[in-house]
Design a protein around this nucleic acid. Structure first.
Lengths: 213, 213
DNA sequence: CAACGTGTGGCACAGTGTGTCAACAACGGC
DNA sequence: GCCGTTGTTGACACACTGTGCCACACGTTG
Protein backbone atom coordinates (compact mmCIF):
# COMPACT_ATOMS: atom_id res chain seq x y z
CA UNK A 1 0.00 0.00 0.00
CA UNK A 2 0.99 3.65 -0.54
CA UNK A 3 3.84 2.86 -2.82
CA UNK A 4 3.58 5.80 -5.13
CA UNK A 5 4.22 8.43 -2.53
CA UNK A 6 7.37 6.89 -1.11
CA UNK A 7 9.84 8.36 -3.57
CA UNK A 8 10.37 12.09 -4.16
CA UNK A 9 8.20 12.89 -1.17
CA UNK A 10 8.72 16.62 -0.97
CA UNK A 11 9.72 18.21 -4.24
CA UNK A 12 9.70 21.65 -2.71
CA UNK A 13 11.36 21.51 0.67
CA UNK A 14 14.96 20.44 1.03
CA UNK A 15 15.55 20.53 -2.68
CA UNK A 16 19.29 20.61 -2.49
CA UNK A 17 19.89 18.86 0.84
CA UNK A 18 22.87 16.56 0.92
CA UNK A 19 20.67 13.62 1.78
CA UNK A 20 18.38 14.19 -1.16
CA UNK A 21 21.27 14.59 -3.53
CA UNK A 22 23.04 11.39 -2.61
CA UNK A 23 19.71 9.62 -2.61
CA UNK A 24 19.04 10.79 -6.16
CA UNK A 25 22.51 9.76 -7.22
CA UNK A 26 22.03 6.27 -5.88
CA UNK A 27 18.59 6.06 -7.44
CA UNK A 28 20.04 7.01 -10.77
CA UNK A 29 22.77 4.42 -10.42
CA UNK A 30 20.19 1.76 -9.64
CA UNK A 31 18.00 2.80 -12.54
CA UNK A 32 20.82 2.64 -15.03
CA UNK A 33 22.05 -0.73 -13.89
CA UNK A 34 18.52 -2.08 -13.88
CA UNK A 35 17.67 -0.81 -17.34
CA UNK A 36 20.81 -2.35 -18.68
CA UNK A 37 19.76 -5.69 -17.27
CA UNK A 38 16.17 -5.29 -18.44
CA UNK A 39 17.25 -4.60 -21.98
CA UNK A 40 19.70 -7.45 -22.26
CA UNK A 41 17.95 -10.14 -20.19
CA UNK A 42 14.32 -9.06 -20.29
CA UNK A 43 12.18 -7.55 -17.60
CA UNK A 44 10.53 -10.65 -16.20
CA UNK A 45 13.80 -12.54 -16.08
CA UNK A 46 15.54 -9.84 -14.07
CA UNK A 47 14.87 -10.15 -10.36
CA UNK A 48 15.37 -7.58 -7.65
CA UNK A 49 18.18 -9.77 -6.41
CA UNK A 50 20.02 -9.49 -9.71
CA UNK A 51 19.73 -5.73 -9.69
CA UNK A 52 20.84 -5.50 -6.07
CA UNK A 53 23.85 -7.62 -6.85
CA UNK A 54 24.68 -5.51 -9.90
CA UNK A 55 24.83 -2.30 -7.86
CA UNK A 56 26.42 -4.02 -4.86
CA UNK A 57 23.77 -3.60 -2.22
CA UNK A 58 21.36 -5.81 -0.37
CA UNK A 59 17.88 -6.60 -1.61
CA UNK A 60 16.43 -4.91 1.45
CA UNK A 61 18.29 -1.69 0.87
CA UNK A 62 17.23 -1.57 -2.75
CA UNK A 63 13.63 -1.66 -1.60
CA UNK A 64 14.30 1.50 0.37
CA UNK A 65 15.04 3.34 -2.86
CA UNK A 66 12.27 1.85 -4.96
CA UNK A 67 9.11 0.47 -3.49
CA UNK A 68 8.46 -1.87 -6.41
CA UNK A 69 10.31 -3.15 -9.41
CA UNK A 70 7.98 -1.22 -11.68
CA UNK A 71 9.02 2.00 -9.99
CA UNK A 72 12.59 1.51 -11.09
CA UNK A 73 11.39 1.91 -14.63
CA UNK A 74 8.50 4.31 -14.13
CA UNK A 75 9.57 6.33 -11.12
CA UNK A 76 10.88 9.22 -13.18
CA UNK A 77 7.37 9.69 -14.50
CA UNK A 78 6.32 11.22 -11.21
CA UNK A 79 8.83 13.98 -11.67
CA UNK A 80 7.72 14.54 -15.24
CA UNK A 81 4.14 14.71 -14.01
CA UNK A 82 4.94 17.60 -11.69
CA UNK A 83 6.60 19.50 -14.50
CA UNK A 84 3.74 18.80 -16.87
CA UNK A 85 1.22 20.16 -14.41
CA UNK A 86 3.33 23.24 -13.78
CA UNK A 87 3.51 23.80 -17.53
CA UNK A 88 -0.23 23.46 -17.84
CA UNK A 89 -0.76 25.89 -15.00
CA UNK A 90 1.48 28.45 -16.62
CA UNK A 91 -0.40 28.55 -19.93
CA UNK A 92 -2.43 31.73 -20.52
CA UNK A 93 -6.00 31.43 -19.32
CA UNK A 94 -7.55 32.60 -22.57
CA UNK A 95 -5.74 30.00 -24.67
CA UNK A 96 -7.92 27.22 -26.10
CA UNK A 97 -7.72 24.28 -23.73
CA UNK A 98 -6.63 21.85 -26.41
CA UNK A 99 -3.73 24.09 -27.33
CA UNK A 100 -2.67 24.38 -23.70
CA UNK A 101 -2.68 20.63 -23.34
CA UNK A 102 -0.65 20.22 -26.49
CA UNK A 103 1.97 22.62 -25.18
CA UNK A 104 2.09 20.89 -21.82
CA UNK A 105 3.07 17.74 -23.64
CA UNK A 106 6.15 19.43 -25.00
CA UNK A 107 7.99 18.28 -21.91
CA UNK A 108 7.20 14.68 -22.73
CA UNK A 109 8.13 15.26 -26.33
CA UNK A 110 11.52 16.49 -25.21
CA UNK A 111 11.83 13.54 -22.87
CA UNK A 112 11.14 11.17 -25.73
CA UNK A 113 13.10 12.83 -28.47
CA UNK A 114 16.09 13.71 -26.32
CA UNK A 115 16.96 11.71 -23.27
CA UNK A 116 15.23 8.44 -23.91
CA UNK A 117 15.80 8.17 -27.58
CA UNK A 118 19.53 8.70 -27.33
CA UNK A 119 20.13 5.88 -24.87
CA UNK A 120 17.28 3.52 -24.24
CA UNK A 121 14.29 5.05 -25.99
CA UNK A 122 12.98 2.34 -28.21
CA UNK A 123 13.99 -0.74 -26.21
CA UNK A 124 12.62 0.60 -22.95
CA UNK A 125 9.42 1.73 -24.63
CA UNK A 126 9.01 -1.70 -26.08
CA UNK A 127 9.61 -3.27 -22.71
CA UNK A 128 6.99 -1.07 -21.08
CA UNK A 129 4.36 -1.69 -23.73
CA UNK A 130 5.26 -5.36 -23.97
CA UNK A 131 5.03 -6.14 -20.26
CA UNK A 132 1.49 -6.21 -18.88
CA UNK A 133 2.61 -5.22 -15.39
CA UNK A 134 4.57 -2.24 -16.61
CA UNK A 135 1.96 -1.13 -19.08
CA UNK A 136 -0.67 -1.22 -16.37
CA UNK A 137 1.43 0.82 -13.99
CA UNK A 138 2.28 3.25 -16.75
CA UNK A 139 -1.34 3.80 -17.66
CA UNK A 140 -2.24 4.10 -14.01
CA UNK A 141 0.27 6.88 -13.60
CA UNK A 142 -1.12 8.61 -16.67
CA UNK A 143 -4.53 8.25 -15.08
CA UNK A 144 -3.43 10.05 -11.95
CA UNK A 145 -1.83 12.74 -14.05
CA UNK A 146 -5.18 13.22 -15.74
CA UNK A 147 -6.88 13.59 -12.40
CA UNK A 148 -4.44 16.31 -11.41
CA UNK A 149 -4.70 17.95 -14.82
CA UNK A 150 -8.47 18.02 -14.52
CA UNK A 151 -8.13 19.98 -11.29
CA UNK A 152 -5.82 22.49 -12.94
CA UNK A 153 -8.22 22.87 -15.84
CA UNK A 154 -11.16 23.38 -13.52
CA UNK A 155 -9.33 26.02 -11.49
CA UNK A 156 -8.41 27.83 -14.64
CA UNK A 157 -11.98 27.80 -15.89
CA UNK A 158 -13.04 29.22 -12.58
CA UNK A 159 -10.72 32.20 -12.89
CA UNK A 160 -12.05 32.95 -16.37
CA UNK A 161 -15.58 32.87 -15.02
CA UNK A 162 -16.79 29.81 -16.92
CA UNK A 163 -16.55 26.93 -14.44
CA UNK A 164 -18.04 23.49 -14.96
CA UNK A 165 -20.48 21.79 -12.65
CA UNK A 166 -18.87 19.28 -10.29
CA UNK A 167 -20.58 16.34 -11.94
CA UNK A 168 -19.84 17.49 -15.48
CA UNK A 169 -17.52 15.00 -17.20
CA UNK A 170 -16.41 17.55 -19.78
CA UNK A 171 -13.03 18.66 -18.37
CA UNK A 172 -11.96 15.13 -17.61
CA UNK A 173 -13.13 14.02 -21.03
CA UNK A 174 -11.07 16.66 -22.82
CA UNK A 175 -8.01 15.83 -20.72
CA UNK A 176 -8.62 12.13 -21.26
CA UNK A 177 -8.90 12.62 -24.99
CA UNK A 178 -5.60 14.49 -25.01
CA UNK A 179 -3.86 11.68 -23.13
CA UNK A 180 -5.50 9.20 -25.48
CA UNK A 181 -3.82 11.04 -28.31
CA UNK A 182 -0.56 10.90 -26.41
CA UNK A 183 -0.66 7.14 -26.16
CA UNK A 184 -1.80 6.88 -29.77
CA UNK A 185 1.22 8.92 -30.77
CA UNK A 186 3.48 6.60 -28.78
CA UNK A 187 2.09 3.59 -30.59
CA UNK A 188 2.45 5.15 -34.00
CA UNK A 189 5.88 6.41 -33.07
CA UNK A 190 7.58 3.16 -32.39
CA UNK A 191 5.31 1.18 -34.66
CA UNK A 192 7.10 3.17 -37.35
CA UNK A 193 10.45 2.31 -35.82
CA UNK A 194 10.85 5.75 -34.21
CA UNK A 195 11.95 7.13 -37.55
CA UNK A 196 9.59 10.08 -37.30
CA UNK A 197 10.00 12.69 -34.57
CA UNK A 198 7.66 12.15 -31.68
CA UNK A 199 6.55 15.77 -31.78
CA UNK A 200 5.23 15.28 -35.28
CA UNK A 201 3.30 12.21 -34.23
CA UNK A 202 1.53 13.89 -31.36
CA UNK A 203 0.70 16.88 -33.52
CA UNK A 204 -0.97 14.60 -36.01
CA UNK A 205 -2.80 12.69 -33.32
CA UNK A 206 -4.09 15.79 -31.61
CA UNK A 207 -5.02 17.45 -34.88
CA UNK A 208 -7.29 14.50 -35.61
CA UNK A 209 -9.20 15.04 -32.39
CA UNK A 210 -10.09 18.62 -31.65
CA UNK A 211 -12.85 19.19 -29.15
CA UNK A 212 -15.15 22.18 -29.34
CA UNK A 213 -13.28 25.03 -27.69
CA UNK B 1 3.41 -14.58 -18.48
CA UNK B 2 0.48 -14.99 -20.85
CA UNK B 3 -2.14 -14.67 -18.22
CA UNK B 4 -4.75 -12.85 -20.18
CA UNK B 5 -5.36 -15.57 -22.71
CA UNK B 6 -5.90 -18.40 -20.27
CA UNK B 7 -9.58 -17.85 -19.62
CA UNK B 8 -12.30 -17.95 -22.28
CA UNK B 9 -9.86 -19.28 -24.83
CA UNK B 10 -12.23 -19.97 -27.67
CA UNK B 11 -15.40 -17.94 -27.56
CA UNK B 12 -16.63 -19.38 -30.84
CA UNK B 13 -16.03 -23.09 -30.74
CA UNK B 14 -17.64 -25.28 -28.12
CA UNK B 15 -19.90 -22.49 -26.98
CA UNK B 16 -22.36 -24.73 -25.24
CA UNK B 17 -20.17 -27.69 -24.35
CA UNK B 18 -20.82 -29.23 -20.98
CA UNK B 19 -17.27 -28.57 -19.90
CA UNK B 20 -17.47 -24.91 -20.72
CA UNK B 21 -20.77 -24.53 -18.98
CA UNK B 22 -19.71 -26.06 -15.69
CA UNK B 23 -16.50 -24.11 -15.91
CA UNK B 24 -18.44 -20.88 -16.29
CA UNK B 25 -20.69 -21.82 -13.43
CA UNK B 26 -17.75 -22.39 -11.13
CA UNK B 27 -16.10 -19.21 -12.29
CA UNK B 28 -19.23 -17.31 -11.51
CA UNK B 29 -19.44 -18.87 -8.08
CA UNK B 30 -15.85 -17.89 -7.37
CA UNK B 31 -16.40 -14.37 -8.63
CA UNK B 32 -19.41 -13.83 -6.44
CA UNK B 33 -17.78 -15.17 -3.31
CA UNK B 34 -14.66 -13.14 -3.99
CA UNK B 35 -16.51 -9.90 -4.62
CA UNK B 36 -18.41 -10.36 -1.41
CA UNK B 37 -15.14 -10.69 0.45
CA UNK B 38 -13.55 -7.80 -1.41
CA UNK B 39 -16.41 -5.50 -0.55
CA UNK B 40 -16.56 -6.36 3.13
CA UNK B 41 -12.87 -6.87 3.93
CA UNK B 42 -11.12 -4.90 1.23
CA UNK B 43 -9.22 -6.14 -1.79
CA UNK B 44 -5.71 -6.12 -0.42
CA UNK B 45 -6.75 -7.84 2.76
CA UNK B 46 -8.44 -10.70 0.92
CA UNK B 47 -5.98 -13.40 -0.10
CA UNK B 48 -6.45 -16.14 -2.63
CA UNK B 49 -6.47 -18.51 0.31
CA UNK B 50 -9.47 -16.79 1.83
CA UNK B 51 -11.38 -16.98 -1.44
CA UNK B 52 -10.49 -20.61 -1.96
CA UNK B 53 -11.68 -21.42 1.51
CA UNK B 54 -14.91 -19.50 0.95
CA UNK B 55 -15.80 -21.54 -2.13
CA UNK B 56 -14.44 -24.78 -0.64
CA UNK B 57 -11.63 -25.57 -3.01
CA UNK B 58 -7.87 -25.61 -2.86
CA UNK B 59 -5.72 -22.63 -3.68
CA UNK B 60 -4.17 -24.58 -6.51
CA UNK B 61 -7.49 -25.33 -8.13
CA UNK B 62 -8.64 -21.76 -7.88
CA UNK B 63 -5.62 -20.75 -9.91
CA UNK B 64 -6.87 -23.02 -12.68
CA UNK B 65 -9.96 -20.85 -13.03
CA UNK B 66 -8.31 -17.48 -12.66
CA UNK B 67 -4.70 -16.89 -13.48
CA UNK B 68 -4.40 -13.90 -11.16
CA UNK B 69 -6.38 -12.29 -8.41
CA UNK B 70 -7.04 -9.29 -10.61
CA UNK B 71 -8.69 -11.54 -13.16
CA UNK B 72 -11.34 -12.54 -10.66
CA UNK B 73 -12.52 -8.97 -10.72
CA UNK B 74 -11.68 -8.02 -14.29
CA UNK B 75 -12.02 -11.28 -16.17
CA UNK B 76 -15.52 -10.53 -17.40
CA UNK B 77 -14.10 -7.56 -19.23
CA UNK B 78 -12.59 -9.87 -21.83
CA UNK B 79 -16.03 -11.11 -22.74
CA UNK B 80 -17.37 -7.58 -22.90
CA UNK B 81 -14.47 -6.66 -25.13
CA UNK B 82 -15.43 -9.29 -27.69
CA UNK B 83 -18.99 -8.05 -27.75
CA UNK B 84 -17.88 -4.46 -28.02
CA UNK B 85 -15.72 -5.22 -31.01
CA UNK B 86 -18.51 -7.18 -32.66
CA UNK B 87 -20.84 -4.25 -32.13
CA UNK B 88 -18.31 -1.89 -33.65
CA UNK B 89 -17.87 -4.16 -36.63
CA UNK B 90 -21.60 -4.29 -37.22
CA UNK B 91 -22.07 -0.53 -37.45
CA UNK B 92 -22.78 0.81 -40.93
CA UNK B 93 -19.64 1.82 -42.77
CA UNK B 94 -20.91 5.25 -43.72
CA UNK B 95 -21.72 6.23 -40.14
CA UNK B 96 -19.46 8.86 -38.59
CA UNK B 97 -16.77 7.07 -36.65
CA UNK B 98 -17.49 8.89 -33.41
CA UNK B 99 -21.12 7.84 -33.59
CA UNK B 100 -20.15 4.24 -34.19
CA UNK B 101 -17.89 4.26 -31.17
CA UNK B 102 -20.59 5.80 -29.03
CA UNK B 103 -23.01 3.06 -30.02
CA UNK B 104 -20.45 0.36 -29.36
CA UNK B 105 -20.25 1.62 -25.80
CA UNK B 106 -23.94 0.89 -25.33
CA UNK B 107 -22.96 -2.58 -24.20
CA UNK B 108 -20.85 -1.15 -21.43
CA UNK B 109 -23.61 1.26 -20.55
CA UNK B 110 -25.97 -1.63 -20.11
CA UNK B 111 -23.35 -3.48 -18.10
CA UNK B 112 -23.01 -0.51 -15.79
CA UNK B 113 -26.61 0.53 -15.50
CA UNK B 114 -28.02 -2.97 -15.22
CA UNK B 115 -25.98 -5.80 -13.86
CA UNK B 116 -23.31 -4.02 -11.89
CA UNK B 117 -25.41 -1.29 -10.46
CA UNK B 118 -28.04 -3.61 -9.09
CA UNK B 119 -25.64 -5.68 -7.04
CA UNK B 120 -22.12 -4.40 -6.67
CA UNK B 121 -21.83 -1.48 -9.04
CA UNK B 122 -20.57 1.34 -6.94
CA UNK B 123 -18.54 -0.56 -4.35
CA UNK B 124 -16.74 -2.64 -6.95
CA UNK B 125 -16.07 0.40 -9.11
CA UNK B 126 -14.63 2.15 -6.12
CA UNK B 127 -12.47 -0.84 -5.33
CA UNK B 128 -11.13 -0.95 -8.87
CA UNK B 129 -10.36 2.75 -9.06
CA UNK B 130 -9.04 2.77 -5.51
CA UNK B 131 -6.61 -0.12 -5.89
CA UNK B 132 -3.52 0.69 -7.96
CA UNK B 133 -3.08 -2.91 -9.08
CA UNK B 134 -6.64 -3.25 -10.25
CA UNK B 135 -6.76 0.15 -11.89
CA UNK B 136 -3.61 -0.65 -13.78
CA UNK B 137 -4.95 -3.96 -15.00
CA UNK B 138 -8.23 -2.35 -15.91
CA UNK B 139 -6.59 0.36 -17.96
CA UNK B 140 -4.33 -2.19 -19.56
CA UNK B 141 -7.34 -4.18 -20.70
CA UNK B 142 -8.91 -1.02 -22.08
CA UNK B 143 -5.64 -0.43 -23.90
CA UNK B 144 -5.79 -3.79 -25.60
CA UNK B 145 -9.41 -3.18 -26.50
CA UNK B 146 -8.30 0.03 -28.16
CA UNK B 147 -5.69 -1.84 -30.15
CA UNK B 148 -8.33 -4.24 -31.42
CA UNK B 149 -10.77 -1.42 -32.06
CA UNK B 150 -8.16 0.39 -34.09
CA UNK B 151 -7.86 -2.63 -36.35
CA UNK B 152 -11.59 -2.77 -36.86
CA UNK B 153 -11.68 0.92 -37.66
CA UNK B 154 -8.84 0.59 -40.13
CA UNK B 155 -10.49 -2.35 -41.88
CA UNK B 156 -13.68 -0.42 -42.15
CA UNK B 157 -11.94 2.60 -43.63
CA UNK B 158 -10.36 0.31 -46.16
CA UNK B 159 -13.71 -0.99 -47.38
CA UNK B 160 -14.98 2.55 -47.82
CA UNK B 161 -11.92 3.39 -49.85
CA UNK B 162 -10.38 5.92 -47.46
CA UNK B 163 -7.68 3.99 -45.57
CA UNK B 164 -5.06 5.56 -43.35
CA UNK B 165 -1.34 5.15 -43.74
CA UNK B 166 0.18 2.54 -41.43
CA UNK B 167 2.12 5.11 -39.44
CA UNK B 168 -0.79 7.53 -39.14
CA UNK B 169 -1.82 7.88 -35.50
CA UNK B 170 -5.27 9.18 -36.41
CA UNK B 171 -7.42 6.06 -35.98
CA UNK B 172 -5.79 5.14 -32.69
CA UNK B 173 -6.13 8.72 -31.52
CA UNK B 174 -9.84 8.83 -32.22
CA UNK B 175 -10.38 5.48 -30.52
CA UNK B 176 -8.20 6.59 -27.63
CA UNK B 177 -10.15 9.79 -27.26
CA UNK B 178 -13.38 7.81 -27.13
CA UNK B 179 -12.03 5.57 -24.40
CA UNK B 180 -10.77 8.63 -22.59
CA UNK B 181 -14.32 9.88 -22.58
CA UNK B 182 -15.45 6.52 -21.29
CA UNK B 183 -13.17 6.72 -18.28
CA UNK B 184 -14.09 10.36 -17.75
CA UNK B 185 -17.73 9.33 -17.67
CA UNK B 186 -16.95 6.65 -15.10
CA UNK B 187 -15.26 9.18 -12.87
CA UNK B 188 -18.09 11.67 -13.15
CA UNK B 189 -20.60 8.90 -12.68
CA UNK B 190 -19.57 7.68 -9.29
CA UNK B 191 -18.13 11.01 -8.25
CA UNK B 192 -21.77 12.06 -8.33
CA UNK B 193 -22.74 9.01 -6.30
CA UNK B 194 -24.09 7.14 -9.34
CA UNK B 195 -27.25 9.17 -9.11
CA UNK B 196 -27.20 10.01 -12.79
CA UNK B 197 -27.55 7.29 -15.43
CA UNK B 198 -24.25 6.23 -16.88
CA UNK B 199 -25.56 6.60 -20.40
CA UNK B 200 -26.18 10.28 -19.81
CA UNK B 201 -22.67 10.74 -18.51
CA UNK B 202 -20.99 9.20 -21.49
CA UNK B 203 -23.19 11.18 -23.84
CA UNK B 204 -22.08 14.37 -22.20
CA UNK B 205 -18.44 13.33 -22.20
CA UNK B 206 -18.43 12.33 -25.85
CA UNK B 207 -20.39 15.41 -26.87
CA UNK B 208 -17.63 17.54 -25.39
CA UNK B 209 -15.03 15.85 -27.59
CA UNK B 210 -16.05 15.43 -31.19
CA UNK B 211 -13.26 14.83 -33.67
CA UNK B 212 -13.50 16.00 -37.27
CA UNK B 213 -15.46 13.31 -39.11
C1' DC C 1 -11.65 -54.44 -17.51
C1' DA C 2 -8.24 -51.24 -19.16
C1' DA C 3 -6.81 -47.05 -21.15
C1' DC C 4 -7.60 -42.42 -21.45
C1' DG C 5 -8.57 -37.54 -20.68
C1' DT C 6 -9.71 -34.29 -17.38
C1' DG C 7 -10.34 -32.03 -12.82
C1' DT C 8 -8.32 -31.90 -8.32
C1' DG C 9 -5.27 -31.33 -4.23
C1' DG C 10 -0.75 -31.45 -2.11
C1' DC C 11 3.84 -30.07 -2.09
C1' DA C 12 7.87 -27.53 -3.19
C1' DC C 13 9.66 -23.64 -5.23
C1' DA C 14 11.20 -18.85 -6.83
C1' DG C 15 10.00 -14.36 -6.34
C1' DT C 16 7.92 -9.88 -4.27
C1' DG C 17 7.39 -6.84 -0.70
C1' DT C 18 7.20 -5.88 4.57
C1' DG C 19 8.34 -5.75 9.61
C1' DT C 20 11.79 -5.90 12.86
C1' DC C 21 16.17 -5.75 14.90
C1' DA C 22 21.03 -4.90 15.63
C1' DA C 23 25.16 -2.74 13.91
C1' DC C 24 27.26 1.26 12.26
C1' DA C 25 28.41 5.95 10.57
C1' DA C 26 27.60 11.03 10.81
C1' DC C 27 26.64 15.01 13.28
C1' DG C 28 25.79 18.12 16.90
C1' DG C 29 26.19 19.84 21.64
C1' DC C 30 28.51 19.47 26.06
C1' DG D 1 37.60 14.54 23.23
C1' DC D 2 32.82 11.99 24.63
C1' DC D 3 27.95 10.98 24.14
C1' DG D 4 23.26 10.91 22.56
C1' DT D 5 20.54 11.45 18.41
C1' DT D 6 19.46 10.39 13.88
C1' DG D 7 19.65 8.01 9.54
C1' DT D 8 21.42 4.17 6.72
C1' DT D 9 22.38 -0.51 6.10
C1' DG D 10 22.10 -5.60 6.06
C1' DA D 11 20.22 -9.79 7.94
C1' DC D 12 16.51 -12.64 9.04
C1' DA D 13 11.80 -14.06 9.22
C1' DC D 14 7.50 -13.64 7.29
C1' DA D 15 3.01 -13.69 4.40
C1' DC D 16 1.60 -13.88 -0.03
C1' DT D 17 1.48 -14.69 -5.31
C1' DG D 18 1.88 -17.67 -9.01
C1' DT D 19 4.00 -22.01 -11.19
C1' DG D 20 5.72 -26.82 -11.92
C1' DC D 21 5.17 -31.33 -10.83
C1' DC D 22 3.09 -35.49 -9.31
C1' DA D 23 -0.34 -38.66 -7.59
C1' DC D 24 -5.06 -39.58 -7.26
C1' DA D 25 -10.10 -39.78 -8.32
C1' DC D 26 -13.59 -39.71 -11.66
C1' DG D 27 -16.31 -40.67 -15.89
C1' DT D 28 -16.10 -42.11 -20.74
C1' DT D 29 -14.94 -45.13 -24.46
C1' DG D 30 -12.64 -48.92 -26.54
Amino acid sequence: MNHQRMNHQRTNQARTGLRERTRRAIQKEITEAAERLFVERGYEATTIGHIAEAVGMSRRTLYRYFATREDIVLGKLDLVADDLLAALRSRPGDEPLWTSLRHSFDLLVAHFDDVWKVEFAEPMQRIIFGTPDLLGRYLEKLERMQGAAELVVRERAETTGTPWADDDPTPRAVVGAAFGCLVAAQHAWFAGGAKEKFGVMIDRAMAAVVPRD
